[in-house]
Write a protein that binds this DNA or RNA. Structure first.
Lengths: 166, 166
DNA sequence: ATACGTGCAAATTGTTTGCGTATGG
DNA sequence: CCATACGCAAACAATTTGCACGTAT
């Protein structure tokens, strides 16, 4: 008898994209619509809300339903494939999960979102959690900022809800 | 003629509570229902959502409408009297604004909320904003934590949405 | 074959608004 | 008096769900 290589489950050949691979590993079916959504998600470099993902999706296949978008986003969030963000407007915004956690600065003047990463912060936050006898599971950190030049002194109101978003 | 003291606007006598005073200073009327809400807000030591404030309110005067609660919370938030928080469940939660900004740890095992304050963090965040040519307007910082003993390794998913809330 | 994926429309949920009346300053 | 506060019900917006039918594995 011949020896087959890659016999173990791991061997998911074909050409699966990163997220498709994750889906395969978790036994999730790869329906046509889901594939389209996955491609969109992998291509995006911003933080779209469900409506926006939906808009981009119907541009590819007009028969995709908004429910599928919501269901897929929720599923991928549970699976840790996507991260849900909340930038102050009502809608939930998403981005692909990346290993080193990063945070966001929201320019309240124009709604622009700037991503940033900082080890010091994480070390500090971990220490704070530990200090209280806790283990840090997740962090949500958003800075609401304005160009260093303009009225209004610094305050503590994150909920000044900027209008435009990326 | 006699000299009257406290002639200037400042002289709001009677016995006004802190928030009532702020309202008076800003020319806001103090309706009966609003007074009740103010008292509740000043007594609370947790982070209730509109529904919960409403529940407590009708316990005092059953004729208060939910719309009044929403309108009052929104008004006080705009006035900087209240701060709106978002702990992962849908509803907006509120607490009385305090000077030194503080943040929250959400125990994902039982939903308990622990407040904390830390100067280092603020200094660091301010530096990060400045580094990008920005001025820090507001911060939103929440730590999702779990008792230092229990499965599940630390991750980056803040949106694991714990069920219970204070 | 069978469980999973998906569309459509209806249902929920949290929050906002229009309007007529009541009331504080 | 006159602006503001308020109740009620209808309006809204984001998201969820039930059901019937396709499709991947």
């Amino acid at each position: 008898m011949r020896v087959r290589i890659g016999r173990r489950a791991a061997a998911v050949s074909k050409t699966l994209s990163p997220i498709e691979t994750l889906c395969a590993e978790r036994g999730l079916h790869l329906g046509k619509k889901r594939r389209i959504l996955i491609r969109l998600l992998e291509e995006m470099d911003d933080h779209p809300c469900a409506d926006e993902v939906y808009a981009r999706a119907i541009a590819v296949d007009s028969r995709i339903g908004i429910a599928t978008v919501y269901r897929t986003l929720a599923l991928f969030e549970e699976e840790g494939i996507l991260v849900r963000r909340d930038f102050g407007d009502k809608r939930a915004r998403y981005e692909v999960a990346r290993k080193p956690p990063h945070h966001h600065m929201i320019d309240v003047e124009n709604g622009r979102i700037i991503e940033f990463e900082d080890d010091q912060i994480h070390a500090l936050l971990e220490r704070i959690a530990a200090r209280g006898g806790y283990r840090l599971i997740g962090t949500r950190l958003e800075l609401f900022v304005a160009p260093a030049d303009s009225r209004a002194a610094p305050g503590t109101s994150p909920s000044d809800a900027p209008k435009p978003f990326d």
